[in-house]
Design a protein around this nucleic acid. Structure first.
Lengths: 221, 221
DNA sequence: TAGATTGTTAATCGATTAACAATC
DNA sequence: TAGATTGTTAATCGATTAACAATC
């Protein structure tokens, strides 16, 4: 099933994609707390969206609610999981076992959602052979041959910025066309490749901007 | 100077704020490479935006270019730095010294941009007293008293999700009104508080969605 | 049934783009 | 001067919201 429940062939708007994980997270909480039903108004209240936006977002994928009732939490959560592709599992490899790589490899909640790191690579001889999140760290030179023999859904780049484009090129050349990029670099890729950026510095700079925007002149200068 | 060079009193659109760090990053590269001038067309080409969008974004803050010439890289970079507030320094504290906290505390590029972690807190007795990024890890109970005595611009939350709202409340109660949140939780705050979310899982889920959207049925199921 | 709430349509709002006069 | 490119205005596009008929 290619359309993942999508109604038409149109691409799903960026904003909707950005909000889906938020819905997923909140619905997970509701289910854990034993809440059975929820209305778009309640969801909107909790998540700081309008009720109309939530209904409109969900309607990109189908009709999951019931007039006069709202949504069944368990059912909607399952639908959202399916829409996000969480009914499947994903194999990942991690390139770069520095501080950030270590944190990523140790983050358990990925695994429980079906994302599994199968191999880790680094160039640092001191790191190679160590274990990290249940994976041995392999020499970077073996990346190519590993990819020849193993199917990988997602490549995680957590290298210093000078190496990240090269790593990206190697991944793509070996058929990995989904990249989760933690290095502060605008990776150059073709249209077939999906890159999701996780830029710590960009995020911090946005925060700094908003601090100045909101509070004007600051104290600790 | 409250307006940071902004022309009118209107808020800067989200999209512009999101792109500013991208401009900053690319201009930094250009300056490092000794490039002297750049046009909006060249910037757009490199960053995958339209030239019009770049000119429109920059015009939120002033007129930095010259007809027939374009922009002087060094000058524009300085302007963007000023707009982002990078002419100032920011004091930060980190709550949570787990894997993610360690990665954040060890990330040197923040410091070089004027963001300095002044103190680290955790509840784990095994971690307390250890050094991390040049900071001793203090017991969480000291957070309140520390904030009484020290001015802090940004509070970084890298705790497990069950504690993050409580930590957030303590920070806000002590006058820290800018939060950089790494825990997978929608923090509840008042309007005066700025929260910048850094949600690893949300980012990964967006990637999963786009994989399914683009490639349809996948291999490693 | 009456009340509640959906999914969708139409209206509104805001952001992006195209076009161009101004001018270096 | 002729060519290039800005900053801005007007046109377009897309996303959000309000409203409401449908209906549980």
């Amino acid at each position: 099933m290619t359309l993942r429940g999508r109604k038409k062939g149109e691409a799903v708007p960026q904003g909707v994609v950005a909000r889906l994980p938020v819905y997923f997270r909140y619905l997970t909480d509701l289910e854990r707390d034993g809440i059975e039903r929820v209305s778009s108004a309640q969801l909107g209240e909790a998540l700081d969206f309008t009720a109309a936006q939530i209904r409109s977002d969900l309607s990109c994928f189908g009709s999951f609610g019931q007039q006069g009732y709202g949504y069944n939490v368990k059912e909607l959560l399952q639908q959202v999981q399916y829409i996000l592709g969480l009914d499947q599992t994903y194999t990942m490899i991690l390139v770069g076992a520095g501080n950030l790589g270590k944190a990523i490899a140790s983050y358990d909640s990925f695994r429980s959602k079906g994302f599994e790191i199968k191999a880790i690579f680094d160039i640092d001889p001191l790191l190679i052979g160590n274990y990290l999140g249940g994976c041995v760290i392999r020499p970077y030179e073996e990346l190519g041959s590993y990819l020849q023999e193993n199917s990988v859904d997602i490549g995680i780049i957590a290298t210093p910025k000078d190496s990240s484009q090269e790593v990206c090129d190697v991944l793509i050349a070996s058929g990995v066309n989904s990249i989760w990029n933690f290095s502060p670099v605008q990776l150059v890729v073709t249209d077939q490749v999906i890159v999701e950026h996780m830029h710590l510095t960009d995020s911090l700079l946005r925060l700094a901007f908003r601090i100045n925007e909101q509070f004007g002149t600051r104290s600790g200068v």
